[in-house]
Design a protein around this nucleic acid. Sequence first.
DNA 1: TTGACAGGCTAACGCTGTTCGCCTACGCTG
DNA 2: CAGCGTAGGCGAACAGCGTTAGCCTGTCAA
Lengths: 178, 178
Amino acid sequence: MSATVEELSPRAREVVAAARELLEAEGAEAFTMRHVADRLGVRAPSLYKHVPDKETLEAAIIAEGLAESAERFEAAVVADRRRPLRALAAAYRAFALEHPHLYRLMTERPLRRDLLPPDVEERAAAPLVEAAGSVDRARAVWAFAHGMTILELNGRFPPDADVERAWREGIRAFEPPR
Amino acid sequence: MSATVEELSPRAREVVAAARELLEAEGAEAFTMRHVADRLGVRAPSLYKHVPDKETLEAAIIAEGLAESAERFEAAVVADRRRPLRALAAAYRAFALEHPHLYRLMTERPLRRDLLPPDVEERAAAPLVEAAGSVDRARAVWAFAHGMTILELNGRFPPDADVERAWREGIRAFEPPR
DNA sequence: TTGACAGGCTAACGCTGTTCGCCTACGCTG
DNA sequence: CAGCGTAGGCGAACAGCGTTAGCCTGTCAA
């Protein structure tokens, strides 16, 4: 029962897995300690034998999400070396749409970096920094991608909006002129 | 005690004002019905004589925020007609940094458009659509601006990140080449 | 055999949004 | 002027939240 994820006990990993399943299946509202406990056939207070608090549990899920998205981003740039930015954008959006509740959890609040394994955040960022050419550009592109994603997830674009076109506009703006 | 903001009773407006002050001064965590009531020297249940529920109260605050940001955006494009995108970006960021808790409330969840006065959302969007040249481009620029803003507010950029430079990179990418 | 410990449990605390029924004071109407 | 409706307070309470305290039981080592 320590700070970062890797050092979790086997039972704690089961708690994390149950919590993530619950979150992904039923959303943030259903993600309560009592419901997580239900999934494990246990009472809520028992969870605290394995995980110090909910925030740490969330951090463990976030760490998983960061690691998995890092893998996808790495694969994307390898798959399309000619237009890495476009490939990354597609991978970014796909991951978020496949895991909307997870994506929200990963981004909606300040990151508790102290509860994350080292470098997991940097690894997820690396492919983009490489593709964008500079960190500043990478941050701008990330902002665009995150903005598109979260605005779409939150239903902020009008129902008739052509989200794909907006993505293309942004990607075109950030890609080097051909 | 009806759906949208304008039709609120005078006392209900006081509730909204107190709620907004509390939110802006102390953040979303402190924004509870009991604390709002405290500000008015009243008990929490009494608020329900004026406002149907917290979500409607939030919507009223969001409507104020949208109206005020619309004014700022309109002023920004007027002030710098040569580079309206840059002016809008500056106005956008300034508003968010001046009202971080309000900005979060305005953007972090799906919009209850049914609780908002008609057109308030559209009015806030209009200056950007004009400056960007097309709705798709406007959505891409908005995504960039919102992404930059919320990532900055959430402390997602590294502490040593040069946020200004990232803003400039994005603005440059979206501005027509000079 | 004893004892430590892992891992469950119930009860409870303070907090949240919200509902209920009650009470009081004000203003309109007969 | 009497009566009454209503606006706007109130306390008590409910279910649900994260979390803590204290207890108990089963397993395994010494």
